[in-house]
Design a protein around this nucleic acid. Structure first.
Lengths: 226, 226
DNA sequence: TTCATAGTTCGATGCTAATCGAAGCATTAA
DNA sequence: TTAATGCTTCGATTAGCATCGAACTATGAA
């Protein structure tokens, strides 16, 4: 019988986990590339491409071509509103981020998001740097403060080298599990690299888990708790 | 990977056509029974039961037992809000009630909804009766006016017999295709029965289509256009 | 009690859509 | 030009879920 999809069509577009994760990531208001969205959703680029095609056809997102990237943004404030209300409902009925698997806790604690640190420790890093006034967040985004620049240099990060790339130095990135911002951008990536170099943490192969050593985690805590 | 459904779970519940139709029907604010919702969705009672179980588990609807019926209502104003926004989005992106099949036009024009007339002609009937001040619609529902009672008697409807049943005489029922109200309740059902008796229309077997004869449709138009 | 109605549960079926590997474009850099 | 990167298309697989027939439970009516 099925006379009219209507609501159902739109809702179904938001109703797939991978797509929902992409859209949640886009709620920061920033334009993200297909590859970034694939990472956020935890799917391969092919799958993400298929999802993005659907979202584009349904006019939930709009693409913007720039160079060889395709940046996606939400198609309008009504989408944001819908997502917010759905979040509220999910929250009310207790459908909060469930820890589905046994290995989930590790992912929630610390994982790579694209190339930077995410999870609880990613959020803690962002908050800690902000509390130490090394980064500053406003409507336009995140930026290093003068104190932050000093810190970066003494911490062994080549800021000039990073600036040479086109990629923005600092960027906010909404966290799935914690639903708060963590630090992305080339500086965020450089920080994680530095953690690896210092032996604080290492990446678990075939997974997105970042595992800190005991000593590394202690150093990390010292870093963000002045 | 799939860390968190969250939004996706709720949206997926709204994203099935059958469920979306049920929820749209519930947006009138009235409590509807499982059987009525099955009719609205165009599925069998078994299927509807399965959907309602899901919606109940997801706390989208709440059941209320009364006699041997189960009445369902939306679980809160946030659900209504979500549905409204989704309607708005669907409208904006042009996902309006599409006519999917070749036999669809007939269904859109006139069909049974449970046991009363729905579709364009159902809506026209409701509007016509209201314009003739035979029924009156307010927040509490719909009711026959004194003039309406006279009309019913002369039209050959046994109002006292209808009143003996527990079922409400008049009820509003949201129309899928037209998204406006049509007349339900025992009076609505009695009207349709009378149309059959008068030979104005007949029900097509194995379908929900109500087919009016040419003369019958003319009489119908006269009835609603004073 | 028996019968009818409202609703659910179970089991089987069939369709849809998500997923990924592999290959193909398209754009940029060297 | 070649090489590399970003993204898409194609094809095959798989899994989930909507759907309905049949049987069962529960409530109310006679």
């Amino acid at each position: 019988m099925k006379e009219g999809p209507d609501i159902a069509r739109v809702a179904a577009l938001l109703g797939d986990p991978a797509r929902a994760n992409m859209l949640t990531a886009l709620m920061s208001g920033r334009a993200l590339t297909a590859a970034e969205l694939a990472q956020e959703a935890g799917v391969t680029p092919q799958t993400a491409s298929s999802h993005l095609a659907k979202l584009e056809a349904g006019q939930i997102v709009v693409p913007r071509k720039q160079g060889r990237h395709r940046y996606f943004t939400l198609s309008g404030p009504d989408i944001v509103e819908a997502l917010e209300i759905l979040m509220g409902i999910a929250n009310r009925v207790g459908h909060n981020r469930v820890r589905t698997g046994p290995k989930d806790p590790e992912l929630r604690k610390a994982r790579v998001c694209y190339d930077h640190l995410a999870g609880d420790m990613g959020v803690a890093l962002f908050d800690g740097l902000a509390k130490r006034k090394l980064i500053e967040s406003n409507i336009n985004g995140v930026a290093l403060t003068p104190a932050g620049i000093d810190f970066a240099n003494t911490f062994g990060i080549d800021l000039d080298g990073l600036r040479a790339k086109r990629r923005p130095l600092c960027r906010e990135c909404l966290d799935w599990s914690a639903r708060q911002s963590h630090l992305a951008g080339s500086f965020g990536a450089a920080l994680l690299d530095r953690f690896y170099d210092l032996g604080w943490a290492r990446r678990i192969p075939e997974s997105r888990v970042v595992r800190f050593s005991d000593a590394g985690e202690k150093s990390f805590r010292d870093l963000i708790n002045p």
